[in-house]
């Protein structure tokens, strides 16, 4: 019976650890947005510098410096998004989990202690944040993928049109639409996973609400 209790508690605490990780993803979305926005602003600055340089005759569009600026634009943009992704991953990996394990090793008293120390209102808040975070995360991922694909495709289309002289045809809109389709396609599994996770978090929220409600109402009579 005591083993059953510790096993069940382990499941509960593992689920709550997972919620903490998800909460960290939500918390790091601000970092992700700042890093991404910073890289977009830097990339656009390089692009503006390239355009100014050509307009005011500092260098020609076919010069190495113009090519370097175009390359830097793409590198900064893609690099910024990749770095932001790594940063979020790093923050999530540094979330301390399993700190309850030594307490649970005590058996039933440990389980009681852990239950006493749980702050249910904070847990429910975290789950709600995690649910919202996953929705934002899924959409952001599609948007960032679209941005990268659109930049790469437009870059390739620009290069192609300069070779085959199809400047009369505006490829930008085509490439942008194509990028949306590709972005959704490559993220379809992740979107499905996030959708299921949001549903599961919802289920967990209801289960824990029930537990909290029942457990709080009941009083152990000694």
């Amino acid at each position: 019976m005591e083993q059953n209790l510790t096993a069940k508690m382990e499941m509960l605490m593992t689920a709550l650890d997972q919620v903490r990780k998800y909460k960290e993803i939500v918390a790091s979305m601000a970092d992700f947005a700042v890093i991404t926005a910073l890289s977009i602003a830097t990339a656009l600055a390089f692009l503006m510098l390239a355009k100014f340089g050509v307009l005011f005759g500092w260098f020609n569009p076919w010069d190495g410096i113009a090519g370097l600026l175009a390359l830097l634009t793409v590198i900064v943009l893609v690099g910024g998004v990749v770095f932001a992704g790594f940063w979020v991953n790093r923050r999530v990996r540094h979330v301390k989990v399993g700190q309850w394990k030594p307490t649970l090793e005590e058996g039933a008293p440990g389980a009681i202690k852990l239950l006493q120390e749980l702050n249910w209102e904070n847990i429910f808040k975290d789950i709600r944040r995690a649910k919202m975070g996953f929705t934002i995360y899924g959409l952001t991922r599609v948007f960032i993928s679209w941005l990268i694909i659109a930049v790469v495709l437009n870059f390739a289309a620009g290069f192609l049109s300069s070779i085959v002289h199809v400047a009369e045809i505006n490829l930008t809109l085509t490439m942008d639409l194509l990028s949306v389709v590709i972005a959704v396609f490559i993220n379809r599994k992740d979107l499905q996973k996030r959708y299921e996770q949001v549903g599961n978090l919802d289920a967990l929220l209801w289960e824990l609400r029930w537990f909290d409600n029942e457990f709080r109402r009941a009083d152990f009579e000694t």
Partner: peptide, 22 residues
Amino acid sequence: KTYDDLVKWILQYVGKVRFPKI
């Protein structure tokens, strides 16, 4: 007995919680 009842009592509640894979 009280200890066993206490464990049983907690298990009665925690045991009913289903944990969806998140």
